[in-house]
Structures are given as structure tokens and as C-alpha cells.
Design a protein around this nucleic acid. Structure first.
Lengths: 223, 223
DNA sequence: CGCTTTGCCGTACGCTGTACGGAATGTCAA
DNA sequence: TTGACATTCCGTACAGCGTACGGCAAAGCG
């Protein structure tokens, strides 16, 4: 019984919020490409065309659920030390994007940012400015951090396995056999190394994040 | 007259390569969502179902053109100094992904990497290993660099303007007016700053890239 | 000659997003 | 009370999608 079970007959009236939330749940459950207006309406116990009274387009619906995802990310705390604030924000954001992998690829085509997205960018810039980054450096830092976050999430989403246990099985059973060791020596070396000590996306993310934070701190001090 | 103009009657026989190349051209011209099997076949002067003799699926076709895009990226030179090699590779990759922005979002759902993709990963690892990165650090470095690259390309693709001249117009006409200065003070500050000195994605990318390369070099020496 | 293989494609099925027009319901003025 | 109107809902229809299926023509081969 995920959410409410309302197979036939939507007693509660439709609303933009209800539509968006249900769409988000559907995307999480079956993937973004399985989200259709008809299916969403059926899930809500409504006719397909009824949705269009609460959402202009399917595009607008996608914009809406992407902004819902961004709203799940913890805002950076303004009064905290900047590296700690940024670190907490980034870790939260990675976890959220790992929960909703379809959201990352959606950003590419979506040019209009919703209120939650804007709020995050604003809070991020505020933290950096308060920490002493000059405007231009703050912009650079913002781009760098966002790029790392989105890129990492994108790569993580495109991994063909879900957890660490899947990884071991997949690597041994699929990757290594089809990876010619003579053609790709370094890749097989990397795969076997990862196989031995396991692979944790969160730890991998933290490693790069700390490298970046150090580099930014050095950048900040050199003004 | 982009490519050949063969409106009616495909004289040359179909082939996997011809199909993929035409699909790539179509995606570049009209965006990935406008690429349909029927339209592609029409463009090639063939029936829709003929394509399926050279490509298993539409999925396989997308896999194919993504790998074509990767093949456009310059491989890192093995004998060069590692920072220079990585830098050249990254700059080339960003330019290529900016030319084919649809390819970035496509990676997310595509789990099977083609030969060109594998070749790049292999060459990258080889450069890092030869430079003295221990296996584990090389893997970290690879993830970090790929993440930055993909994330930056993703953000660049989602910008609502194409060139620097568009940027000035868009910012002044659309962003700043709709950006409440009291609600988003830091963002408006950033927008006006960028408006004054212009905005160049390639320079922005290079800035973060050099920060990362410095950090990785420090990481490498601390072994 | 017959036979199989190969490349091609016409048709059809079930799906998609959504334009359009009509029906039901709630709200307010006269 | 009655009429007018706005809001919400939805049934139908249309163009387009990916592709399963079966048929057609030419080529290669005994």
C-alpha cells in the first residue's frame, strides 16, 4: 500500500499538488519513460484530460516534479562554516538524486528552473559570498560544485547495478568476461581492484567532493 | 544542403553506418526527441521497417549514435605529460558534448557502453597509471574528471541561450526582471556581474578543470 | 530448374500527447 | 427562484509513435 490505494473512483478532488505527487511516485516506481498522462490519470481515478486543468502540458508536469525533487535537498545552512555547509548540501543532494535517478537526465531539456531550484542556487551563493569568495570566484565555485554533483549523479544513475552486492556479482559475471584483458588492461585491473575492496558510491562521491572543497579553499585564500 | 539531399529514392543501399550517421545528423538538427524511426527512414528514402535489418531496436540505434559522439572526442595522448593529456582530452570532450547536447541526457538510461566509450576509459586510465597514480587513486581521479565533464556539459546544455550574445539579451530581458532582487539578492548580483564581463562556457570549464588538475596532482604527490 | 537466404516494406496493433466540444457542478446577481 | 457564468471533468478523435508479422523481389547455390 504505497500512498493511498484508490484503484477505482477518486474521492478526493484533483489538485496540482496531488497530480504532481502522484506523478513523482509513478516516475520513481516505473521510470520516467513509463509515466504517461493516461496512466497517471488512471492512477488518480480520473480521466486523462482532467489533468490538463491542473497542468498546462506534460512538459509543465515534468518541470513540476523536477522541482519537487529539488525541494527534497537540504538547503545549505547560512551560519555554518562554508565547507561544512557545502559538504552537507552536496551529500544530501547526491542521496536525493540517487533516489530519483530519472530527474538528472530530465534537467538537460528543462530550461526553466522552479522556485525550489532557484532557492538552492541563492542559498549556495549566499554561503560562498559570506565565506569571502569574491563574486566571480563564487560563480566559479558554484559551477564547479554543481557540475561535479550532476555529473556524479548521472554516472551513478547509469551504472547497471543498484547496490554493492549487485556490483560484485555483475562485475564477476558480466564485465570481466567480456572485457578483453589484452585490449583493456587498465580497465580490467580497475575492475578487479574494485571487486576486491567493494564499491560504495557515497564514499566515492565524498572523496572527490573533499578534493574539490580543498581546492576551492585554496582558491579563496589566494585573493 | 546538409549532408546529401536524397529526398526521394535512396539509391545507395542502407547500412548500419549510414543509418547511424543519418540519425546523428537528425538528432543534431532537430533534437533527440524529434528523432523517430519513421522520420529517419523517410530521410533515407526507405520504409520504416527496413531500418530494423541494420539495428535491433531504437534503443540500439541510440546506443550507436552515442558511441559515434564519443568517437569524436580526442583520445588522451599516452606519451604526453599527464596534466596536459587530460586537459586536452577534457577540452575536446566538452566541445563535442556542446555540439551534441542531447547525448548527455541519453547516457543516463544507456547502461551498455560502446567500443569508443570503452576505448576512452581505457586510455584515460592508462595515462593516470603511467603518471604514477596508484590504482585506487586513478579510479578516483577518473570518476572525478568524468563527473565534472558530464555535469558541466549537462548544465551547459540546459542553459536557455546558445552563445555569448544570446546571453546578454536573455539576462537583461528575461532573468533580471523576473528575479526578485529582494528574494534572490545573490543571484541578481551574480547575473549582473556576468552581464558586465560576458560569459564564456569554455573559459568557465577551463577554470574548474585547472582547479581539479591541481588538486589531483597534489593527491598524486602525497603517496 | 528449384531452393533458401537476404534486404526491403505495407499493414496493423496498441500506445502516446492533446485539441475540441460537451456535461456536470458550484457561485453569484437579479 | 431563476438565469448566467465559471470551473472542473471527461469522451471522442487525430496524428504520430515503436515494432510484430507476413509478403515480395532479387541473389546465391545445389
Amino acid at each position: 500500500m504505497s500512498a493511498e490505494a484508490e484503484g477505482a473512483g477518486g474521492q478526493e478532488p484533483l489538485s496540482r499538488e496531488r497530480v504532481l505527487r502522484r506523478a513523482l511516485a509513478l516516475a520513481d516506481a516505473d521510470g520516467i519513460e513509463a509515466l504517461s498522462m493516461r496512466k497517471l490519470a488512471r492512477e488518480l481515478g480520473a480521466g486523462a484530460m482532467s489533468l490538463y486543468h491542473h497542468v498546462r502540458d506534460k512538459e509543465a508536469l515534468l518541470d513540476g516534479i523536477v522541482d519537487l525533487v529539488f525541494a527534497e535537498i537540504a538547503l545549505p545552512e547560512a551560519q555554518a562554516e562554508w565547507q561544512a555547509a557545502v559538504r552537507a548540501w552536496a551529500l544530501s543532494a547526491r542521496a536525493v538524486l540517487a533516489r530519483h535517478p530519472w530527474a538528472i537526465g530530465l534537467m538537460e531539456s528543462r530550461t526553466a528552473s522552479g522556485p525550489a531550484t532557484l532557492q538552492h542556487r541563492e542559498a549556495m551563493m549566499a554561503v560562498l559570498r559570506r565565506a569571502g569568495f569574491p563574486i566571480r570566484r563564487a560563480i566559479h565555485a558554484n559551477w564547479l560544485l554543481d557540475s561535479y554533483l550532476y555529473g556524479f549523479a548521472l554516472q551513478e544513475a547509469s551504472l547497471p547495478f543498484a547496490g554493492a552486492e549487485d556490483f560484485a556479482g555483475m562485475t564477476e559475471a558480466v564485465f570481466l568476461p567480456q572485457l578483453s584483458a589484452t585490449e583493456y588492461p587498465c580497465l580490467t585491473e580497475a575492475a578487479t581492484a574494485l571487486l576486491q575492496e567493494g564499491y560504495d558510491p557515497a564514499a566515492e562521491f565524498a572523496y572527490g567532493l573533499d578534493l574539490i572543497l580543498d581546492a576551492l579553499e585554496r582558491d579563496r585564500r589566494s585573493t
